[in-house]
């Protein structure tokens, strides 16, 4: 079947989709957006969390056919989404139209001294920067889903209590960090957000 929907503000079309495919599969294997992660495919880990018409959902549990005519935001579009939060039409994400991470892209990756430093690469959303700064990223597999979930938390609740943060992120498993640095990162993003509002 064919599915048309919007991803990170850009209209997308997928053809020859098998009816049993999930939104996650379509994003990862057909749209070239592998940022949403395939850790459990049963809605238990939150690594594939995306916004579906603004609502955080597990992309692995949305049938591809269900996203027809709907809007999806993935981690790849999170920085833009955060930037244009108020706009009705968020700016284009980084959907390239090509599929997946190509080998060439993978081979070309080399860490640069600027990686991880603020201000020198493409601008990140506040929650993305806070995850780097607070040491909330280790293997990073849970990170995209946590970022989407945490960004939505701060959108609706600018100064959450620790228990509120824990509840909002209780659907996102992390196996590396023991969650302490993830809590730190959300606190940090909230504090920076507050500072920005006050100044």
């Amino acid at each position: 079947m064919r599915v048309n929907f919007t991803v990170n503000g850009r209209p997308q079309e997928a053809d020859d989709v098998w009816e049993g495919e999930s939104l996650l599969y379509v994003l990862r294997e057909r749209m070239g957006l592998p940022g949403s992660k395939n850790a459990c495919e049963q809605g238990e880990c939150g690594s594939c969390t995306v916004r579906l018409d603004g609502v955080p959902v597990c992309a692995c549990l949305v049938a591809a056919g269900q996203v027809q005519d709907r809007e999806v935001v993935t981690v790849e579009g999170l920085a833009d989404y955060a930037k244009h939060r108020q706009d009705t039409h968020p700016g284009g994400g980084c959907a390239s139209g090509a599929c997946g991470t190509t080998l060439d892209e993978a081979k070309r990756w080399q860490s640069k001294p600027t990686d991880g430093r603020a201000g020198e690469a493409a601008p990140l959303s506040p929650i993305q920067q806070a995850f780097i700064d607070a040491g909330a990223v280790q293997c990073g597999f849970c990170t995209p889903g946590l970022l989407v979930a945490a960004d939505e938390l701060l959108e609706n609740s600018p100064s959450p209590s620790d228990q509120d943060i824990r509840e909002a992120l209780s659907g996102n498993l992390c196996r590396c960090t023991g969650y302490e640095k993830i809590l730190d990162a959300v606190r940090l993003a909230a504090a920076r957000q507050e500072e920005a509002v006050q100044s």
Partner: peptide, 9 residues
């Protein structure tokens, strides 16, 4: 029920 993401769906 499960997690916030699941409760949303």
């Amino acid at each position: 029920v499960a997690s916030p993401q699941i409760r949303n769906r």
